[in-house]
Design a protein around this nucleic acid. Structure first.
Lengths: 312, 312
DNA sequence: GTGTTTCATGTAAACGTTTACATTGACTCC
DNA sequence: GGAGTCAATGTAAACGTTTACATGAAACAC
């Protein structure tokens, strides 16, 4: 059915070895032969069977990207950054997502690991032991925002702690004196780090002001509900720091609903810098994270970890 | 180095054929043998070499997704829909983007087509002839929002024409009598269709009102500039229909900058329904397109086109 | 008991590449 | 003109699977 290297060889009147060499830009093949091969390949619309090639080269030129979800601009930006770096390196990217639980994530890693040269993983449900049990040895991986303190794995992360810390500093600098936090999911790594940043910054900068933490789960809805709870308080905080932008947006709904204006009546800040944040009016104050850049760096780190033989 | 089916066979004391059969859930393999194989595979952390399998099964269990860009929520939603449908079908997705010109897109199709079972293409620069020249025969593809009137290719598209038409109808119903359009890029298929919808609806519903078309390129910036031009007009339109949401947001900036309130002073509508649209205040009136759904349907259409033998 | 069927398993070919090694012919050097 | 070198090409093995076919044993019918 499909056209193989043999067909090209026949058409160009050379051996398959010469076709392979010509198409892969090897040195010693005459200009004449090369031309005949290339013409024949084009005419036959030959596409190398990448599986056959991978089988022998032991490279797939593909890296797997495992994400917890694809919802929202955070992931879109992340993928964009990864894709950009990948195309520069001549790599394809295999995307997988929606891993609500560890079991599913493990299964995904399994099926992916057979078809990629490396893995980029962002998964809140993955820990070092699980990885050790799942991963075939020798497959390079880079973890993104994942709480693994095992030196065996390369990790790259948003600086959640200092980002949150800096935001509190900023709010205090603006004169706010009672700052509430809408926290993220209890077991989420990012959320925990941001919470830690909030706590430490508060203890440091406003030692007399109590922590005021409202639970949330990163959804807009939860931000909205937290906002309503905050409104109802007798001694309302004068600023709210939401652990991500979605919750900040939700909170803002709740505030404006009862006539409170930001920032006139109450301060409001978020975390993430999804580009969306700029469009909300008034624009959200938010911790800027160059998400696409994070993706790029992760991919570059991964490639750097490849064994030296593939300096193609 | 890596563990192969032979290692598993040795460990389980059976032949490679039995291992293959056991692992792929074939009928005739004794419970005893199956158990030994599965245990051995788990212990050795065996992952089938997918390239070797693809070589013989002629299936990669992967579909390629070619997008013009990855920027913004439109694509994020689209990928999410595709991914969702793909995982249901047990397929992986290979994502590729940033194809500013036809040449790059062709190259991308080439490299992808060797490693996928089917292709989902959204590319403004692709036309039927180019596809015919590039595609290996027999590879199923589905085009998304691509202007190809060739019966050979399956196409799925947002209904730009009727969407725009409906929006004008809606605005007229609200009492607006002079409706301007901020158009998209001149050669973009979606933009052209929306323009056509605007024109026809206007001719039909407000035959006495002239077309008022301002150029744009789908960027927020261009919407902003169009908004400024509109503000400066002596006989300002009483509503503006932007051909996508980004431009609507940009236009809104321009309007509020000079104190014009939407919708009190002027009507404003967009097209796309990126989730973002809900967060702008006041919420943007926009043509709702279920983007994730579009992606899902596209994938399902693609799978439906696979040859019958792969009812795995 | 023999002949037949059925089931579990093994053997080996095939998939489409890349590449180590072998071969060929032309050229250089003395 | 023969030995040696080198460039261009060909031959065939190897990669790790799946599966058609072969084999052998057990079960069954008579």
């Amino acid at each position: 059915m499909s056209v193989t290297i043999k067909d090209v060889a026949k058409a160009a009147k050379v051996s398959v070895a010469t076709v392979s060499r010509a198409l892969n830009g090897h040195e010693s093949v005459s200009a004449d032969a090369r031309k005949r091969v290339i013409d024949a390949a084009r005419k036959l619309r030959y596409v190398p069977h990448s599986a056959a090639r991978s089988l022998i080269t032991r490279r797939t030129q593909t890296i797997g990207v495992l994400l917890p979800d694809l919802h929202g601009e955070f992931f879109s930006e992340l993928i964009r950054g990864i894709d950009q770096a990948a195309r520069r390196e001549g790599l394809h990217i295999l995307v997988s997502s929606s891993h609500d639980d560890a079991k599913e994530a493990v299964a995904a890693i399994r099926t992916m690991s057979g078809r990629v040269d490396g893995l980029l993983i962002m998964s809140p449900h993955i820990d070092a032991r699980l990885l050790k049990d799942t991963l075939p040895t020798g497959l390079p991986i880079v973890l993104m925002n994942t709480p693994v303190d095992d030196v065996d794995y390369d990790t790259i992360a948003i600086d959640n702690y200092w980002g949150a810390h800096a935001m509190i500093r900023h709010l205090v600098g603006r004169g706010y004196r009672s700052i509430a936090l809408i926290a993220g999911p209890e077991h989420n790594f990012d959320a925990k780090e941001r919470l830690r940043g909030y706590r430490d910054a508060l203890a440091e900068l406003l030692p007399d002001s109590p922590e005021r933490i409202f639970s949330g789960d990163f959804s807009e809805e939860s931000g909205y509900r937290a906002g309503q709870r905050i409104i109802g308080l007798r001694d309302r905080p004068d600023a709210v720091f939401a652990a991500n932008d979605m919750m900040a947006v939700g909170c803002q709904f709740a505030l404006t609903e009862v006539g409170l204006q930001v920032p006139r009546d109450i301060g409001l800040a978020g975390f993430d810098d999804i580009p969306m944040a700029r469009f909300v009016s008034p624009p959200l104050t938010t911790v800027r994270v160059r998400i696409a850049e994070l993706g790029q760096q992760a991919l570059e780190r991964l490639v750097a970890g490849f064994s030296p033989q593939d300096n193609v």
